[in-house]
Design a protein around this nucleic acid. Structure first.
Lengths: 150, 150
DNA sequence: TTTCAATTGATGTATATACATTTATTGTAG
DNA sequence: CTACAATAAATGTATATACATCAATTGAAA
């Protein structure tokens, strides 16, 4: 694979900003591809997986749709319909919030937790395999991305 | 904005690999949001814009659908339908390739080129504004992303 | 030459994103 | 209390992705 110029067969970029944007979009697509491949046999999309991890992070406490939305990687998306899909597979449950009937309490089920446990080692393995960076570089990269966003 | 932990309200990550993946996905969404905002008034999606830049890069030579696909940031996507949309707006033209009727020659139009020229300074400006990195950091980041993919 | 595989693109379907709009519920000002 | 604004989620629509499949054309082997 190597340099972004070879990857997308573009010899020059307007400036380093533009090059970083293109490089990030391309690397994003590279990573999501592997994640999708691991999740697909379990009939999960990357975003459904993300929602499940958010719910597990609640450690038993329910999360509202708005709370899930806020933690999602793709802002302004559609937690409501993702929860629908997960509920249809019995991976989450959704209950009307008793003290405020506008809200909805969403919880991960036992089945959902078991699926996450099953997937975790695979995800860890694929990440290690396809991310060709050492620990120090990972930390550096995380720092740069944090700084990028200000 | 700051650290990824605050951004998505997650206090810990399994390992640095996982953190880099989440950070990349989140930063991707951050950047695409701004790009979309600039392109939207012109009725262009980020991927349509990408296809137009690929065609401009051909410098007058036509590109087949397969050639466009190969250079796109999202692999395995759908250049055929994106070209359709752009053609409907007269931003590209599509002609049957004379020496091989399976192929299609796609070219950017004058109108397309003018639109790109109009958008370019806006894109450059927004990139500079929302990417809070200096030149040396941009180069470092590009290098890390290239190395990540191996 | 005829047949069949390979190539190229178009199309179909499910999923997800990005927004706008709608519905239901709650809270509050008059 | 009533009317209306604010909140929370659901729904509608257009766009795009990720694949699978289909159709047309080409090229090559029998």
């Amino acid at each position: 694979m190597g340099k972004i110029e070879e990857a997308i067969k573009q010899s020059e970029f307007k400036d380093s900003y533009n090059k970083v944007v293109v490089n990030l979009l391309y690397t994003h697509s590279y990573l999501v591809g592997f994640q999708t491949a691991v999740l697909k046999p379990m009939d999960l999309s990357p975003e459904q997986y993300n929602v499940m991890r958010i719910l597990r992070g609640q450690q038993g406490k329910p999360a509202t749709i708005a709370a899930i939305q806020e933690r999602m990687l793709n802002t302004m998306s559609n937690a409501s319909r993702l929860v629908d899909k997960l509920k249809a597979k019995d991976l989450v449950k959704r209950e009307e919030c008793p003290e405020n009937r506008r809200k909805v309490d969403v919880l991960i089920t036992e089945k959902g937790l078991r699926l996450l446990e099953l997937l975790e080692p695979e995800i860890v393995a694929i990440n290690k395999k396809v991310i060709h960076l050492e620990e120090a570089e990972l930390i550096l990269l995380n720092g740069l991305l944090d700084k990028l966003r200000g």
